[in-house]
Design a protein around this nucleic acid. Structure first.
Length: 319
DNA sequence: ACATTCGCCTGCGTTACCTCA
DNA sequence: TTTGAGGTAACGCAGGCGAAT
């Protein structure tokens, strides 16, 4: 069935039906090549890649044929193999006068019970009983729901349509129903359920993303708490201060007086005559005496790591 | 201009059917 | 053969919108 693979989805949970009725909600469900519109900015970034191939693979199901009120696996009937039971026989297919008619008496209607106001509406969309098309909706008298299984082709076409727009206007719905030989209501329901599946999938992805964020932040918080404790301990024990690996280090060239972050590629020039702090985020202040010392002493070999913060708090001991 | 009604659409929750392990 | 789980077509409802009155 539908794979549990991660999806590159973005969802605006604030969107409501009446809004995307005019500004159709376009979830970022498609591969990046999708040219469809996009939803409002997601509440958080999501960088996963969408893979919907599994959805199409799902459509490879046994066709089911309703025979005398019972569901029969078409594969168990050799004569029915290769026959799409969801499609009308080509010879018997009658061109409908209107698009509404295309759905109302689809062969699938023999498999689906119709009830409720919407069913009435669909039924009223031009359904005259067509004996050539088998059992009408009204003939499905036991009131039980009969489910049809959409054919592979039908599912694929619906998926393609959904990729283009996850909601349908009446014209599109009717055209699609006619193309697929389904009732418009069936197309409508399929899109409803498809949107629901999309949202469910997105919710799962969002939950996983948030869970990972939470884990990362928890770990980061734990690390920072530990660092704070270490720094407090060091402040109380100056003798250990110089032996501590600073949380952030700079590397300075003693000859050119360039300081660079040990991990960064950019360098910052320290000018001994400058009155501003060499630390980007530190307030401007006169150069401390020990800075003068550092800049004038000779440091052999490669650049020596220089603790950043200790400069502001405790002078290094001269050797 | 405003309120009401109607028809339609949507999301959501649920049910029931179907398939498969 | 039975059974339970999972997928999904279909249903019912509530709520919102636009058009008509």
């Amino acid at each position: 069935m539908m794979g549990k693979d991660d999806l590159g989805l973005s969802l605006s949970l604030s969107s409501s039906s009446h809004h995307h009725r005019h500004l159709p909600l376009q979830l970022n469900l498609m591969p990046s090549s999708s040219a469809s519109g996009r939803p409002p900015s997601p509440p958080f970034p999501c960088h996963q890649t969408t893979q919907w191939a599994g959805l199409l693979a799902d459509s490879d199901k046994r066709p089911v044929l309703e025979v005398c009120g019972g569901a029969v696996d078409a594969r168990s009937l050799p004569l029915l193999r290769g026959i799409d039971v969801n499609r009308a026989p080509s010879s018997g297919a009658v061109e409908r006068d209107s698009e509404e008619d295309a759905g109302a008496s689809s062969p699938n209607s023999t498999l689906s019970s119709v009830s409720g106001k919407r069913a009435e509406r669909d039924t009223h969309l031009g359904d005259e009983h067509d004996p050539d098309r088998g059992i009408s909706d009204e003939d499905d008298g036991d009131g039980s729901r009969k489910k049809l299984r959409l054919s592979k082709d039908q599912s694929a076409i619906l998926e393609e349509s959904f990729k283009e727009h996850n909601t349908l206007n009446p014209k599109q719905k009717l055209a699609l129903a006619k193309q697929l030989n389904l009732r418009p209501r069936q197309v409508e329901v399929w899109f409803q359920n498809r949107r629901a599946r999309t949202k469910l999938k997105q919710t799962e992805v969002d939950c996983e993303f948030l869970r990972r964020c939470c884990e990362t932040l928890t770990e980061e918080n734990r690390r920072l708490q530990k660092e704070v404790q270490e720094l407090r301990a060091l402040k109380l024990s100056p003798q250990f201060y110089m032996h501590m690996t600073p949380p952030t280090t700079l590397t300075m060239c003693p000859s050119c007086e360039r300081v660079s972050n040990s991990t960064a590629s950019t360098t910052t020039t320290i000018t001994t005559t400058s009155t501003s702090s060499p630390f980007a985020n530190a307030p401007a202040q006169p150069m401390p005496e020990h800075h003068q010392f550092l800049h004038h002493r000779t440091i052999p070999g490669p650049w020596a790591p220089i603790p950043l913060r200790p400069f502001l708090d405790a002078p290094p001991q001269r050797s």
